[in-house]
Design a protein around this nucleic acid. Structure first.
Lengths: 138, 138
DNA sequence: TTATTATTGCAAATATGTCGCAATTTGTTA
DNA sequence: TAACAAATTGCGACATATTTGCAATAATAA
């Protein structure tokens, strides 16, 4: 059993959950360098049912084993800088509400510094926080 | 015609595209404070067909009028910190290269502070920079 | 107004995500 | 190892989201 698999087992056992073959397969599929889409996971794990993959992904997310990244389907839309004012967002994992965070000079300054150390000329950026809003974190 | 509508018309004309009623309506729906979901747009613009809204949104995105935002329930999946290393990305607009940016304590600290002022319990965040890499910015 | 072209509406197809329940697997106990 | 209880999965049906072809409509220019 690989290192990561052992880590998974510990995490599962801590919650009284079992280390099963489908869960191992999905974990294995996550080891590729690139983040995977649902469709890719389904393809990579043909022996695991689609519904099960969704359930496993949901579980892994709750256990903090994986996280979702922006690149496609469920999304919100807003006008870009030219048509609007630049700011950031904090979205509640529970109720889905999006809180607007005003541009922050300390943050922007730090971003510039980090970019410069890499010789990167930043032209724009997108920052998204996720967690629980005031109402949902009670 | 409002200021923003005129701006839209200019953008469209530049590409030989027309300023139509559905496009104006979708633009209007985007003027609300909160970012909108597809479902919300469809509700706000009942006279515009669902398929057309999708097409208009796709067009607006290409024209740089609107942008998609991550909101917690999304797309690609990757292992979290414990099973992987947390980092950010800087992508070069010119050559497409992605630079990995290590986690930065100053940045993380500031994010926590900003969240707290809003009563938001941050659990994770995602940061994407775009601009020019060292090689391309010469 | 008319012709030409761009856009849209409609309806059907495809893709994505969820749910209940029976079948299977896992862990436990003997 | 056998047998049981609980956890987990597969299956199929359902619900929702997104895309596509094509005919109908609206916009532009003459």
């Amino acid at each position: 059993m690989t290192n990561v698999a052992e880590q998974l087992q510990k995490t599962l056992q801590g919650k009284g959950l079992n280390l099963t073959r489908p869960r191992l397969l999905v974990l294995g599929a996550m080891q590729y360098k690139e983040p995977q889409t649902m469709a890719q996971l389904v393809t990579i794990c043909p022996s695991v049912n689609r519904a099960s993959i969704y359930r496993i992904v949901t579980l892994f997310e709750k256990l903090g084993i994986i996280q979702r990244l922006q690149t496609g389907w469920k999304y919100k839309l807003e006008l870009t800088n030219e048509f609007h004012v630049h700011h950031h967002h904090a979205t509640c994992d529970n109720c889905g509400q999006t809180i607007i965070l005003a541009e922050d000079s300390i943050l922007e300054k730090r971003l510039s510094e980090i970019s410069e150390t890499k010789g990167f000329k930043m032209r724009s950026h997108q920052l998204e926080l996720s967690g629980l809003c005031a109402a949902c974190s009670v």
